[in-house]
């Protein structure tokens, strides 16, 4: 039987945007100029994990799910170019990117139910915008599925998923029955680059688009939060630059200065 893996992928502002091009105003974050959005980095690792399972398993299908209001198609198609099979966009004004994960959880849950035959959901450990790290856990709870987080290795066999989890000082292997939700971390390794054939193939794929009307969102919880304020954090540090005749001299002066300040 075909193993059906869903990967959740979020389109986010490029987190590598220099701080100076990063604007916070009117309770919203934006980037200056024409810096294109990207697929959330950890979600690319989720695509990579799914493709590795597909290669090991043979008979598997990888569907990418993304939830949002607007998509840059050439960006959100990257997982297809990497080798995923299908792309479903959950696109609706109601799916506004919010610090409150409630709606994203509801939409992804409803879409996974609608797909019907999903065995495994793989997500990035968190998205680089709100850093909530909770949508995949919410989806698992809503579906009533087992969950394992922060994996660096994911294998599927005999109706179970085995995940090697990253710990602060080591790692552990956990096993869960399918269907399950797994999140992956950067320790999984660098995601593959799309090759030319993948890019050409991705161009021809028309994503499926589902709006609120296509999803059963009955029973969606009411909003959990109201955003009170969003601002750039204040930096109160007065930096003292230590200089010298040359770099070595500056190094010596740094030690003397730290002693003077009783830091050392």
């Amino acid at each position: 039987m075909t193993l059906h893996i869903v990967v959740t992928a979020k389109q986010v502002l490029d987190p590598e945007t220099p701080l100076s091009a990063f604007n916070v105003a009117d309770n919203a974050v934006s980037t200056a100029g024409n810096i294109p959005p990207v697929v959330n980095g950890y979600d690319e690792q989720a695509v990579e994990a799914a493709l590795r399972i597909k290669e090991a398993h043979g008979d598997a299908k990888v569907t990418v799910l993304s939830c949002g209001t607007d998509f840059a198609l050439d960006v959100i198609k990257k997982p297809l170019a990497m080798g995923a099979d299908e792309l479903v966009l959950l696109q609706d004004a109601a799916f506004e990117n919010s610090i409150d994960p409630t709606m994203a959880v509801a939409a992804l849950t409803a879409a996974i139910r609608k797909l019907g035959d999903v065995d495994l959901v793989i997500s990035g450990r968190q998205a680089s915008d709100w850093d909530n790290a909770q949508v995949p856990l919410g989806v698992a709870e809503s579906l009533g599925w087992a969950v394992a987080t922060i994996g660096r290795k994911v294998d599927v066999q005999d109706g179970t998923v085995r995940v090697e989890r990253v710990l602060p000082d080591g790692h552990e292997t956990v096993e869960a029955p399918l269907p399950a939700v797994v999140t992956v971390s950067n320790e999984l390794g660098t995601p593959r680059y799309p090759n030319m054939r993948g890019i050409m193939a991705a161009r021809r794929v028309q994503p499926t688009v589902w709006t609120v009307a296509d999803l059963d969102l009955d029973g969606t919880a009411s909003p959990a939060f109201e955003l009170v304020s969003l601002k750039k954090p204040e930096r109160a540090v007065q930096t003292e630059m230590i200089t010298g005749d040359d770099d070595a001299d500056a190094g010596r002066k740094l030690a003397l200065r730290l002693r003077e300040e009783r830091v050392l």
């Binding site: 915008d129 939060f225 109201e226 601002k231 750039k232």
Partner: peptide, 16 residues
Amino acid sequence: RPVYGGNAEASVACLG
């Protein structure tokens, strides 16, 4: 809490 990798700070009121 910090958001956007610490580039911004958000305050939320918990509802419910």
